[in-house]
Amino acid sequence: MPLVTQWTGVETRALREAARMTLAEFAHKLGVSDRAVAKWEAAQSDATPRMVSQAALDTMLARADADVRGRFVGIITAAQTVPQQLVEPDADPVDAGEYVRFPTDGKMMARVPGGIFLAGEAGEPVWVDEFYIDVFETTNADYARFVAATGYQTPRHWDDGRCPRSMYDHPVVEVSWKDATAYAQWADKSLPSAEQWEKAARGTSGAVYPWGDRPTVAKCNVRETRVEQTTPVSRYHSGVSPYGVYDMVGNVWEWCSTPTTLGRYELKGSAFSSPLFRGMPSAYNDADDFMQDDDTGFRCIALPEQISSLA
Rank of each mutant, 00 (worst) to 15 (best):
A36P: 01
D142A: 09
D288H: 14
V37Q: 07
A36I: 02
D294I: 12
A19F: 03
P164R: 15
T59V: 09
N285G: 06
A18N: 01
Y243V: 05
W186E: 02
E17V: 08
K268N: 05
V4R: 04
V208K: 09
P304I: 09
P49I: 08
M280W: 10
Y209T: 00
L118M: 10
V82H: 01
D213N: 15
D67W: 05
A18K: 04
Y132P: 00
A55V: 13
P304H: 11
T230L: 05
V94P: 00
V87D: 00
L262F: 15
A78W: 03
F117S: 00
F136D: 12
V172A: 11
Q80L: 03
S282K: 08
D188N: 15
A47M: 08
D90Q: 12
A91Q: 02
Y236E: 02
L23I: 00
T258R: 11
Q54F: 13
A55E: 12
T154D: 02
S45R: 11
R50P: 00
V10Q: 08
A110Q: 03
L310A: 09
R202F: 03
E174N: 06
P215F: 05
S190L: 06
Y246I: 00
A302W: 05
D159P: 00
Q153C: 00
Q6E: 07
W158A: 08
G9T: 04
P164Y: 15
A55R: 15
S308R: 10
E130S: 04
P192G: 12
S282G: 05
W40K: 03
E124K: 13
Y152N: 02
D213W: 14
R156Y: 06
V217W: 01
V208F: 04
F298R: 05
V217K: 01
K29G: 07
V82I: 07
T296K: 04
W158M: 08
D247P: 04
V126I: 15
V252A: 09
P210Q: 05
P281L: 09
G250D: 10
R235E: 00
T204I: 10
R101N: 02
T261D: 13
S176H: 05
E121L: 13
E121R: 14
S234N: 14
R299C: 11
R156M: 07
R264K: 13
A56K: 12
W158R: 04
F117R: 00
D289E: 10
